[in-house]
Design a protein around this nucleic acid. Structure first.
Length: 579
DNA sequence: TTAACGCGCGCG
DNA sequence: AAAGCGCGCGCGTTAA
């Protein structure tokens, strides 16, 4: 059963019970009901308590779900029309459908509304964003909440259902849309719950490394290092934060660096290098995750980043503000479970090469990854002679490395695993021709921009120069590396979505009816890694659920093909304790 | 004064 | 060792 949820005027919502996706002219009229927004959570909760939970159809999970969660109401399933539209619009599997061939419309231009972190999200629904409020649509900021003129969710849902039904592979697309929508729910739930985070530990950590928080200026340790750098380079005024100035000072002192990148400086022998590298490391910590970051992002013992599901072309998530996907290893000791609770930190081992194994149905590579570390398995197969080589060769194959050690190892990898290598090579060739490539479940890459096509055209023109042709070839190869990686990264993102959605269901089943944050719940997601916050006595069950969900995700994507997806699941008090 | 851009580095 | 994919962010610099 689907229930469509849309705004009705300024402070009400309309629920429509959908008997079928299509709306036939001769069918009975659909039952619908208008309720004030204030009464919506109660109504949704009542539907969720029914024996058959509905699938809520709405324009945008980020516009509806935060307020429901704030009112203590969880939703099991939904259709996020905005996210699903984006997939169906560009997928090669739906290319011939009405949805994909239509002129660009209001569903193509939607931006994600900004979701305020839960504790400060006081209003149940943001009335200022009501569709008939001309002021809000004029600003263009968060005016996409609700259903602005031109966006008809009922019609869009029918169009999407048609597109899936007429697609080249309805089963896979249906799975992808369900997973994407589940991801949208999870993203909001992650922000609602927040990552357990000790501001005190973070402060202690900073103080230990940088010195006490200064009222203004650099902390003591950075101040000392600045002095050491200035002395070492005989440049008393130097600002070490200015790369051009730093580079000039280095060269004046006889250090022949061509940039100020750490990895380049590391190879140079000079007394100033050691304090300089230490300065860079600590300065990065201060600016990215220092006290300012702590004040802005950690409240009431929780770090609540704004997750953006589907925020990356490949289907990976992005975050907005807080840099949640770049939480440095340095500060992970501040991620600590509540008293009596544990963190289950789970990580899918060598996810991308295993996904490639499934995509290519490469039996040899599946065998290499069975029951052990995939890279060790590649060594055991005799293709290369040490783990580091196996890893660098695999990464090179998936990223398109041509030079260096990785490039040199490619032929050996190709001999041992011809199917896997052929799959990424074919994806690269397609990109070089300017074609789309498509993930396991049906997400397709964008087409290259107009500049790309212009460059190719210039190379084929009658009066083309050698430079034109070089440029075109280079652009073509660049795009080929993107599409090569796209098939793997996008499919891995799908695996991760399925894993998380399965895990979410299993966690809910561990404590039926419990409020989100009173039972085991997801608190963090990082591409191939999740953290569950759980009462200590349920931690073993959670770890088992994490593993079972991974197995299930593998079956959902690759059916009976015997590629394994082992996950490590560490039960710890602090994130830093996990590997 | 603000906006756009490049650099450098954190994560996968 | 530092190439080959995808990001976000803060800073300094430069253009407008």
């Amino acid at each position: 059963m689907h229930i469509l949820l849309e705004r009705s005027g300024r402070d009400a919502a309309r629920l429509t019970w959908l008997e079928s996706a299509r709306r036939d002219a001769d069918a009975a009229p659909e039952r619908s009901r208008v309720v004030p927004l204030a009464g919506l959570p109660g109504l949704v909760a009542a539907e969720e308590a029914a024996s058959e939970r509905p699938r809520w159809v709405w324009d945008d999970t980020r516009a509806w779900y935060p307020a429901l969660l704030a009112a203590g109401v969880r939703v099991e399933r939904c259709v996020d029309l905005r996210l699903c539209h984006a997939i169906l619009r560009t997928s090669t599997l739906t290319a011939a459908t009405a949805l994909a061939t239509a002129e660009p419309g209001p569903w193509d231009a939607m931006e994600e509304p900004v979701v305020e972190a839960a504790p400060r999200h006081t209003a149940l629904f943001d009335l200022d964003d009501a569709p008939d409020d001309p002021a809000s649509s004029a600003t263009g900021s968060a005016a996409t909440v609700g259903a602005p003129a031109g966006r008809d969710p009922r019609a869009e849902f029918a169009l999407q259902e048609d597109a899936v039904a007429q697609s080249a592979d309805p089963r896979r697309l249906r799975l992808l849309l369900a997973a994407e929508s589940a991801g949208a729910l999870i993203g909001v739930e992650l922000q609602h719950a927040g990552l357990p985070y000790s501001a005190q530990r973070h402060d202690e950590l900073l103080t230990g490394l940088l010195g006490p928080r200064p009222a203004y200026g650099r902390p003591a340790v950075l101040e000392e290092l600045t002095r050491a750098i200035r002395d070492g380079l005989d440049s008393p005024e130097l600002n070490p934060d200015s790369p051009p100035d730093l580079l000039k000072a280095l060269q004046r002192a006889g250090v022949m660096a061509t940039s100020t990148r750490s990895w380049e400086l590391r190879r140079i022998e000079h007394p100033v290098i050691e304090p300089l590298l230490r300065y860079k490391k600590l300065s990065r910590l201060l600016t990215a995750n220092g006290w300012t970051w702590l004040d802005a992002w950690v409240h009431d013992g929780r770090f609540r980043p704004d997750y953006v599901p589907g925020g990356v072309v490949t289907g990976r998530w992005a975050t907005r503000g807080g840099g949640a996907l770049q939480l440095p290893k340095q500060v992970r000791g501040a991620v600590v479970a509540d008293p009596g609770w544990k963190l289950v930190v789970a990580d899918a081992a060598q996810l991308e090469p295993r996904v490639l194994t499934g995509l290519a149905a490469d039996q040899a590579m599946a065998a290499a990854g069975r029951g052990k570390d995939l890279y060790e398995g590649i060594v055991a197969s005799g293709a290369v002679d040490e783990r580091a080589h196996a890893k660098v060769a695999m990464l090179g194959a998936m990223y398109g490395a041509t030079t260096g050690e990785s490039g040199r190892l490619m032929p050996r990898l190709q001999r041992a695993f011809p199917r896997a290598v052929a799959l990424v090579e074919e994806a690269a060739r397609a990109g070089e021709r300017g074609e789309k490539v498509t993930s396991r479940l049906g997400r397709s890459s964008p087409l290259p921009g107009t500049g790309w096509a212009a460059a190719q055209a210039a190379a084929f023109a009658a009066d083309s120069t050698a430079a034109d042709e070089r440029r075109a070839r280079s652009r073509a190869r660049d795009w080929g590396r993107f599409t090569r990686n796209f098939v793997v990264q996008a499919s891995a993102a799908e695996w991760a979505l399925c894993w998380m959605a399965e895990l979410r269901n299993r966690l809910t089943a561990l404590a039926p009816g419990a409020a989100l944050t009173e039972a085991p719940h997801l608190v963090y997601f990082l591409h191939d890694e999740v953290i569950v916050h759980t009462p200590a006595d349920r931690a073993e069950e959670v770890a088992a659920a994490v593993r079972a969900a991974a197995e299930q995700a593998g079956r959902l994507l690759f059916g009976a093909f015997p590629v394994e997806f082992p996950v490590t699941a560490a039960i710890v008090d602090s994130y830093a304790e996990a590997k």
